[in-house]
Write a protein that binds this DNA or RNA. Structure first.
Length: 246
DNA sequence: ACTCGTGTTAGCTG
DNA sequence: TCAGCTAACACGAG
């Protein structure tokens, strides 16, 4: 479920199924997922417009049209379906295209968000695109635990709970250490580890399918087969290997 | 039956 | 100003 790799897959699917198509109708009746728009507001803004591009910053999807920009966020349980069955459960938002195709946001927990002209200024640089210098600034100047900083989308966009644990494990860094206490080499290692974790998840077909994520769910370190430590860090369940994450 | 959680955000507390 | 905590969303997995 959705972290940056899932958002990137959704972006590619949008490029395939939505790019160039014209919106014939929109179902925006779920006023929680579509807040603060009243029902009909998104539909009115979108109908008649053509999709001209599909971008992504972190977990935020940006659907450019010749009218307004549509923002899609998958939350924790959201996924996009194309040419979906009309009876699909947990449908929270949908677009119908003039050629007969459709796009549905399926989201059982309703944690996703659909917006117009999403405020991008509140997101930090995308975790795959951030330069080393910028990464050192963003992560290495924070007094928060380094894991909490990785999860802060306003600092760095795209890293979720699983990716953060995996990257810290790959880099051999204790998630509870403060950003300011990491040296230049550790920050460089961490950036490399974030990138490797994202690339691995993209290849494996999802964040939860990486070898680390599977091992993590069992509480076992993939490297030693030993037990992972567990605690709340940055408000999220965190697992790490006490043997080599220092 | 019961607890937990791959995300985000507002509002509050220290 | 910065960081931690909680509630809200509402379901599936273990």
């Amino acid at each position: 479920m959705p972290e940056l790799p899932e958002a990137e897959r959704a972006r590619q699917a949008l490029e395939h199924h939505a790019l160039g198509r014209v919106v014939a109708d929109a179902d925006d009746s779920d006023s929680f997922v579509c807040r603060p728009w009243a029902p009909g507001g998104l539909r009115e803004a979108l109908v008649g417009h053509r999709v001209t591009g599909v971008a992504r910053v972190g977990k935020q999807l940006l659907v450019e049209t010749d009218g307004p920009m549509l923002g899609l966020h998958l939350g924790m349980s959201g996924s996009l379906r194309f040419d979906a069955d009309p009876g699909l459960r947990f449908k929270r938002f949908a677009l119908a295209f003039t050629d007969g195709g459709n796009m549905v946001l399926r989201d059982p927990r309703r944690l996703g968000r659909v917006t117009l002209d999403p405020a991008r200024g509140r997101l930090g640089p995308d975790a795959l695109e951030v330069s080393l210098d910028r990464f050192r600034d963003l992560v290495g100047r924070s007094r928060a635990p380094v894991k909490a900083r990785l999860l802060n989308q306003q600092a760095l966009a795209g890293v979720g709970n699983l990716l953060a644990d995996e990257a810290l494990w790959r880099a051999g860094i204790d998630p509870r250490r403060r950003g300011v206490d990491l040296d230049r080499d550790e920050l460089a290692r961490l950036r490399r580890a974030v990138r490797a974790s994202i690339r691995g998840a993209l290849k494996a077909g999802g964040t939860g399918r990486s070898p680390f994520a599977r091992s993590r769910s069992l509480g076992i370190c993939p490297r030693h087969g030993s037990e992972l430590a567990m605690a709340k860090v940055g408000g999220r369940t965190t697992r790490w290997c006490p043997l080599d994450q220092t």
